[in-house]
Amino acid sequence: MRNTPHPLNIAWREDWPQGWPHFFWGQWLISPLVKASKPLDSASDSTVELGSDSLHQAIKSCYPQLSFAQLAHLYEQWRHNPALQQELNWQALMAGYGFRDSEPQRLTLQKLIQMPSPFQAWAHHKALGPKDLAILLSFAEPNPDFDELLEWMAHSQTSKSIGVQVLEIAGELLLMGKALPSRKSLRPESYLMELEGQRRPLSRAALENKNQELSTLPWPARCSGRWLRLGDALVLETKVMGSNFQEVRQRLEALSRVFLAREDSPSQPASELSSPSEGSCQ
């Protein structure tokens, strides 16, 4: 029985079942130090010596899945503990969890551990990977506004896909020296739209102008349209409603006349109208 176990820092695994034994590999305690809120009692708790060939295999057999955020905690311990470095092959451990060890990945692990704890927990529960967290590497110094945002994201139960976009766009705005828009009473989805507008102000203005212009067209009854951005292109979405084929056809004809008149209109922006003349400069 060991008197001074060396526990590995596996975060968010504190609910180790009461009846389970503690798992060791050499001096390293792989299961959590705390069992259902009861500290390890080396005298009475049963322990199991794992027979794996290496520590990384022992960890993997105990924890078939570890998130990138959990690995960040373990990495923090590993890089400050020469004895652990000697026994744990970090590259092999990462490979076991589907990550290819590299310097950018190690730097991301280090950055993640410096972020507010609620955000780390959120990153763990949402299984964020190194690419999702790449924005963290662009911050050379801690940024209180960014930290506040991260805490808000964690507390707002933001979904992974929305959260990853918020992270990147808000991070870029802060790095551009801009203030983040207020989050008061906004849901993450709405906040993302707000951020997108601020990150791409020219494109948003261009879209608003086009829609403003569209609203001035003499739309036939029960016809409507709006400009949308689809990838890098603007597309015009048009709705035509009718209670029978003839009605739809009539409205389409009316709509066609409106569009034809619009195409001939001299108020079109130059970028749409300019047509290079014939010649070799084509």
Binding site: A233, L234, A270
Partner: peptide
């Protein structure tokens, strides 16, 4: 990732 199509066209034109 590219500039919006309409901006590219404007620049090229």
């Amino acid at each position: 990732l590219r500039y919006p199509l309409e901006l590219r066209q404007e620049m090229f034109n």
